[in-house]
Design a binder for these strands. Structure first.
Lengths: 224, 224
DNA sequence: CTAAAAGTTTAGACAAATCTAAAAAAATAA
DNA sequence: TTATTTTTTTAGATTTGTCTAAACTTTTAG
């Protein structure tokens, strides 16, 4: 069994390895863990001893099969608890991260299977992220950033790539919530902001925001 | 904020102080914490520094107001999670203790208030123990042990004073579950075992078992 | 009331996770 | 390709919670 700290390292290494292909660097881990590079090196050695990561000095790290499997299980727990908090306890989507961050370390496979069932085996968490099943399999469908859409294109909001409370609160205020359909009216050259029709409402969204909203595109009435 | 370990010490000191009136002894804590007396002394000093317990060398310890309040909050969380596990996730009453032991340390007052509401503000946990409200108040009604009842007396099973899985499984098998009404047919002199009518079923219960079943007595049809 | 037993504390050590400061390796730039 | 910067590692220290062994109080028994 792993300590909370080890679990957090594994989870962070997993998330970092999704963004960049190669090995994960010490400094990147240190930043995410809010700690110092020296501490990361110490922990890295420990995780390598346990065969949870591959590590060669100065070359960064990579999860092994068992390390990856542990990390995905933590992600599964985190996202299931987020669903519970939003669906059952009526928390808002910007309020659940920190609580799920604690709950994800509760160690009881039986509990998680029953929770999954209680929630009717959800496929996605309240931010649209896919929930791995108990074997670690999950939808890898990647959505396109709102900022990549062109004039006239349409789609549905499927997720976000920034989970900060301030960003989520802002989206809420704009009405940009999961499942909402939208159509691009125009992309403004000057600042890259996006003018769009959200259901029936017209609004302008900054490029910064558009970069973190994930869209499933759809064919917009091709006959017209 | 307290560490998990500190919280466990407070909780154990609280439980021990319910049984015997005086101060709680180092060795008693050590036994419950599965640790050594020397370790307990170290922790005791730390908790005393934080003004969570009163401590004089060789004299045992006693919770202060704030220590007691923290301990009761942990008990509240433990019992609410047990209700959740049994009522919502359909665990059996003998399966929930260890999981609740982990969940009780999750630190989010908002979470606990919402959980309480989600569960419709239960007054008792699955073993009949009272759940403190958010101000730390709770029913102090103490029930009588089944082993204290006399021939002809009747009552309802309200709780248990042993929470071990083996004991609870045994009760389940006998049909001795919360809310069941019973009447004493006879108390056997030889071994102190109790013959009783449980609803319509006659059965014999050992003295050891009877000592850990808690009863609310009722007047048994005094007219007859 | 003293001697033995029981219970408690101290002293010194250890493992886990962290830190600072300094050394070493790798990457980058002139 | 050498010098500088960036990144990473090592060395040594700190904190938390634990331990063993020994010393010290308190309680109990004769």
């Amino acid at each position: 069994m792993q300590s909370f700290t080890e679990e957090n390292y594994l989870k962070i290494i997993y998330h970092l390895s999704l963004n960049n292909e190669g090995n994960v660097q010490t400094n990147a881990i240190a930043e995410r863990m809010q700690t110092k590079a020296a501490s990361v090196t110490d922990m890295i050695k420990k995780l390598a001893d346990k065969q949870l990561i591959d590590y060669k000095k100065y070359q960064g790290v990579k999860l092994t099969e068992s390390g990856r499997s542990l990390a995905i299980n933590i992600v599964r727990k985190h996202r299931l608890w987020e669903v519970f908090l939003v669906e059952k306890l009526h928390f808002k989507w910007d309020e659940v991260h920190d609580i799920a961050e604690e709950l994800e370390h509760i160690n009881s496979p039986e509990l998680i299977e029953r929770l999954d069932e209680f929630l009717s085996f959800p496929k996605n968490d309240p931010h649209g992220d896919p929930i791995p099943d108990k074997n670690g399999k999950f939808d890898t469908a990647t959505f396109i950033k709102l900022s990549k859409l062109k004039k006239e294109e349409t789609g549905i909001i499927m997720g976000v790539s920034d989970h900060s409370s301030s960003f989520l609160k802002h989206l809420e205020k704009l009405g940009l919530t999961l499942g909402k359909p939208l159509k691009i009216i125009d992309v403004i050259d000057f600042d890259g902001s996006v003018e769009l029709l959200l259901e029936t409402k017209k609004l302008n969204v900054s490029r910064e925001v558009a970069k973190h909203v994930l869209i499933k595109t759809s064919i917009d009435n091709p006959a017209s």
